[in-house]
Amino acid sequence: MLVVVRKYLEEVSVLKVRVKFSKTGSMKFIGHLDVMRYFQKAIRRSGIDIAYSQGFNPHQLISFAAPLGVGLTSDSEYMDMELRSSFSSEEAMDRLNAAMNDEIRVESYLELEEGSKNAMSIVAAADYCVSLKDGYPLVEDFQVKFDKFLTQPEIIMLKKTKKSEKEINIKPYIYHIGFTAEEFGNKINQNIGKTVAEQYENGQKVYMQIATGSVVNIKPELVMEAFCQYIQIPFQPFAYQIHRMEVYADLQEDNKGTPEEYGKNRKLVSLEYFGHTIGYY
């Protein structure tokens, strides 16, 4: 016969931390659920004192901000963990990184204030860099055409979800566009730092800050598809490497109203904003 002795743990959560990690290389083929499993095991290997849920099948108390689609890479993915105790940020990062391969790296490890909302619930926007992969046809006068594309009064696209399809105007949700890191950085008032994004020889790319999260979620693929429709070329989904650079929350919590107002009133801060480094005790 088979007997399975199940673990039984009491739920004791003392503190919450937010982990930022990058994802690149072959890890882009690992889907969100498998990344979760990957972290569950990495956390156990690293000796992080994770808290578990109660009940018959206890699970680690971790949650992710905004699932990254298969095929995408990222500089800034966020995961919240509840812990029973913690190492310093530095040691915890070292331990996690030592327990993982070099295509997923922990970039920061910050303690959250008590009562902080979890990352998943506050995501409002994200920055992306969309690069044309080598071997696909270049678009001539890419920047000029892209700028012109954005001057349209509205950009109507068919947005498909699991439940429904509907037409929406995505234009108000495209917050900023840039064609170099510097230009884009100036527009969003950030210094664009180092990136794990793959660089392609052809150099054709576009940076975009767009609405993300549970209220409005615009995928960069949809923007590119709209652009291709506008310049009347077929949209090839594999032609672009999409790379997420940052994920934001909106400090204007009750930001409602028309799409235009929603876009204008926002006050975006990166998800790291809500945490602080844990020093040596």
Binding site: M1, L2, V3, V4, V5, R6, K7, Y8, L9, R44, Y52, P58, Q60
Partner: peptide
């Protein structure tokens, strides 16, 4: 290992006092 949340699976075990 139970404190670390590890399940222990014991296949091909006879049911006896020990089990």
């Amino acid at each position: 290992f139970r404190e670390n949340g590890v399940n222990i699976s014991l296949p091909s075990l006879r049911i006896d006092a020990f089990a």
